[in-house]
């Protein structure tokens, strides 16, 4: 979507529903410094969602959309799961893939976009649950990493199959008893972040979404590294409050409890040497841009 094209025909402007007028006038397309702090003061790229009240996944989704560095040139690839209910309402191009196929779809898409738009940065971001990423789609996930496909894979890890009633998934913790897994998980949680690192991902993070600043930082890093260097992987804990017996107000605390240093979602980060160089370079440019903006503002107010 070109920013030049996001214009409503003047003669029909009055009949357009307000949400579309807002998207043109108040959304943050093309804003270099967009981030989670825009939430509440600008038009979000997620219109409404039908997820449960207090769902951490809905928080994560909003932070991610607010943090995309280049939403007008981003295509998200989703998979079956609760996020499927949200994708129809977002203001970003997206594709719903068959369950588990998301990384294969994203591979083809990224290559096609690179051929079609050789002079323009087009970001592809996969957003799928743990069932699609680690169980049913593990083959596609790993093969995309082995091939060094240049896109970001985000796994919303809720440690079970949530919207089908709570079956055991590979990312479920050992011993956990769920509604549809009554005897408890008998083997350890699959260590996908480590597998991602060994499979060639250049930027890997395992964390919760309790801190929006952190989510913004890792999303931007992952997308920039994927754009320039190779595959990146984020595993974000988005607990399903219904399936673990919590109420709407307890999702945030559940994430905080799970990110303590000895817990399974303690912050872990891996950055390859080439990715480190790139991120240092981007950080330096960002610092320069902010300093210039500050100077300009000071000159204007003087």
């Amino acid at each position: 979507m070109s920013l030049e094209r996001i214009k409503i025909a003047p003669e029909l402007h009055d009949i357009m529903p307000e949400e579309y007028q807002d998207l043109v006038q108040r959304a943050t397309y093309g804003n270099n410094s967009r981030g989670w702090k825009d939430i509440g003061t600008s038009k979000e790229l997620i219109e409404e969602h039908s997820l449960c009240a207090g769902c951490p996944e809905s928080m994560a989704f909003r932070y991610i959309l607010a943090s995309l560095p280049n939403p007008e040139d981003t295509v998200m690839v989703g998979s079956t799961g609760c996020t499927s209910l949200v994708f129809p309402h977002v203001g970003v191009h997206n594709i719903h893939s068959l369950f588990g196929n998301q990384n294969a779809i994203a591979s083809g898409l990224k290559r096609a976009l690179t051929v079609r738009f050789p002079d323009r940065a087009k970001d592809v971001v996969v957003l799928a649950g743990d069932g699609a990423t680690v169980d049913i789609g593990l083959d596609m996930t790993l093969q995309a990493w082995f091939r060094q496909e240049k896109f970001t894979t985000i796994c919303f890890d809720n440690e079970l199959y949530a919207n089908t009633g709570g079956q055991e998934s590979g990312l479920m913790q050992k011993g956990f008893v769920a509604k549809m897994a009554p005897v408890g998980k008998t083997f350890e949680k699959v260590r996908l972040p480590e597998i991602a690192r060994e499979s060639g991902c250049h930027y890997v993070v395992n964390c919760t979404v309790s801190k929006p600043n952190l989510v913004e930082k890792v999303i931007k890093n992952a997308i920039h590294v994927a754009r320039e260097i190779g595959p990146t992987y984020l595993q974000l804990y988005t607990p399903c409050i219904l399936e673990i017996g919590k109420n709407s107000m307890e999702g945030l605390q559940e994430m905080r409890d799970s990110e303590k240093p000895t817990e399974r979602f303690a912050y872990k980060e891996y950055i390859s040497e080439t990715a480190k160089e790139l991120l240092t370079e981007i950080a330096a440019k960002e610092k320069e841009r902010k300093a210039a903006a500050k100077k300009q503002l000071a000159e204007q107010t003087a």
Partner: peptide, 20 residues
């Protein structure tokens, strides 16, 4: 009217919107 005329993609689209 659908998206091809509601949005001013190009001059032709804008003219069609006017005609509509």
């Amino acid at each position: 009217p659908g998206p091809l005329v509601l949005w001013a993609w190009n001059e032709k689209a804008a003219q069609k919107a006017k005609a509509i």
